[in-house]
Design a binder for these strands. Sequence first.
RNA 1: GGCCCGUUGGUCAAGAGGUUAAGACACAAGCCUUUCACGCUUGUAACGGGGGUUCGAUUCCCCCACGGGUCACCA
Length: 489
Amino acid sequence: MSNVRVRFAPSPTGSLHIGGARTALFNWLFARHNNGAFVLRIDDTDTERSTETSYQEILSAMKWLGIDWDEGPEKGGEYGPYLQSQRMEIYRQAVAKLLSEEKAYLCYCTVEELAERRKKAQAEGKPPMYDRRCRYLTPEDRNKLEQEGRQPVVRMAIPDSGTTTVHDLIRGDVTFENNTIDDFIIVKSNGMPTYNFATVIDDYLMKITHLIRAEEHLSNTPKQILVYEALGYSLPKFAHVPMILAPNRSKLSKRHGATSVEEYKEQGFLPEAILNYLSLLGWSPEGEEEILPLDKIIKDFSLERVSKNAAIYDTKKLTWINGHYLREADPDRITKLALPFLQAKGLIPNPLPDEDYNRVQNIILAVRERVKTLEEIADAASYFFKEIEEYDPKGVRKQFSKIETADLLDEARNYLTELSEFNAKTTEEAYRKLSEDKGIKTGQLFHPTRLAISGRTMGPGLFDIMELLGKETVLKRLEKASKWIRENN
RNA sequence: GGCCCGUUGGUCAAGAGGUUAAGACACAAGCCUUUCACGCUUGUAACGGGGGUUCGAUUCCCCCACGGGUCACCA
């Protein structure tokens, strides 16, 4: 185990979305590549918005994706606890230190007062920064304000000159003027620390060596560096990875369709496909191959090949990758994964009786070759489990528009009835013989038959469908189709 | 608005002063095939604009434009 330690620190205020998953993945890949440790920490200092549900959702999404953590919730570790809400005493000590050294100070301004001043500053075209009016309060001032019943917050005393530079592994040096940095709040009036403060303490105490996170945090970084310095902590290395944007170039939000890992799961995407796709957003391997097994990604991953520019996610490519993995996956695994989707559509009973398993599996395997998600497997397999409700209109125009076709289907039915063994091989032989006997091209026979027994113009091999459907069903559907043709022509 | 980051085809992206500017997805055509899909072949399509530096800029510098992020008692 090398000394590389990285972390993913989501706040449990919503489900794990694609962007968060990508950040988690890059951290995880970096840890695995370097044989380091991947820490999961829950940043739940926002008591208003944090929920147990989100917490559970995030953990389960991580597990589903296969991004496992070496230290963190449910796992423990040397540097716990891994929930910030359980680390209050640690923060309290740090605050006391800063306060006593006058690197931080108490501020009695209320939320309302602040909001008003911010509004006013904005209106005057000035930056909406805190005016530092509580920075130089005397003990008497503080007493007075406290007697008014005001609950103070703690603010960092930011130097009013100089610069702070972030040495970013991806972007190089990024320098900020200290006078553009606010005396930001590090402890709220309810006693909870804020993100920019707690994260520094925890990252330091947890011995995190590399902070790999989304670019939206780059502007926060100088604030955090100032906290590191005030506390006398050594700095980790920073790497700000590009953001993932929605198709309209804006930040990911619910409005843009599926954004959470959970939703992709529900749509029938495979975890390995999502991981593969996500790894390609903002990072590129050296070779040209883009379908990459996870161990290959781990082996090749490096921060040097992470790009600087934001990426718009494209479901089409994800879908293509998913189709690939769907076809490659182990038959039993794919069957088990597809079952719930068939059940959700009421195509098969839940639980599925053991004696039906084989047939259902064969259907799934026949159909998976031509679809891209588990959900589509269910759509493509529907006619194996229920009656055909409607013949594909385009197919009808092409195949069911002549009365002779009805005669042909009747004749086909006779040929098939004769069969003592009914499988792909025997049915195909019968069909080839029929088309020969009639002196017609196989297509003239095959296409209407496909429509008759599946209701569609596309799908698995015709004779595979027959075998999967069984003799009785095939004969019945053939008869029904021939009748339909006579009635509609 | 201030500050910060970014800008190669529709999308993801390679590229590191001299290239016919890769590759993938998507799209189109063809082949294969009983259909569809897979696979294979081929094609359409890009360096935001303007100045420099240089014998030569997609590549280095500056300006502009555009996109994004951030300025919360959210993380």
